[in-house]
């Protein structure tokens, strides 16, 4: 999958992954995609909720080896 920026949120617990993503998205332009890797199992539901509330698009959400990978497209 293509992405413009990557954020390593491994080892961080709630609410830090969300806060880091918010900060990183602010540095990007609309339409760009951010890849996030996290280890917090709560982040799966939280990123869905985050995207629904902020208007950013959750393009992908996957899990493997105890890691959760998300692809978020910044709203235009």
């Amino acid at each position: 999958m293509d992405f413009d920026k990557e954020l390593d949120a491994r080892g961080l617990n709630c609410p830090l992954p969300i806060l880091r993503v918010k900060k990183t998205l602010a540095e990007m332009t609309g339409g760009q995609a951010l890849k996030v890797v996290a280890t917090d199992s709560g982040s799966v539901k939280d990123f869905q909720a985050f995207c629904r509330q902020t208007g950013n698009e959750l393009l992908e959400s996957s899990e493997g080896n105890g890691e959760y990978t998300f692809l978020i497209k910044k709203k235009a």
Partner: peptide, 9 residues
């Protein structure tokens, strides 16, 4: 936690 998260939202 709630204040920082709400700000992010």
């Amino acid at each position: 936690i709630l204040a920082s998260t709400a700000a992010a939202l």
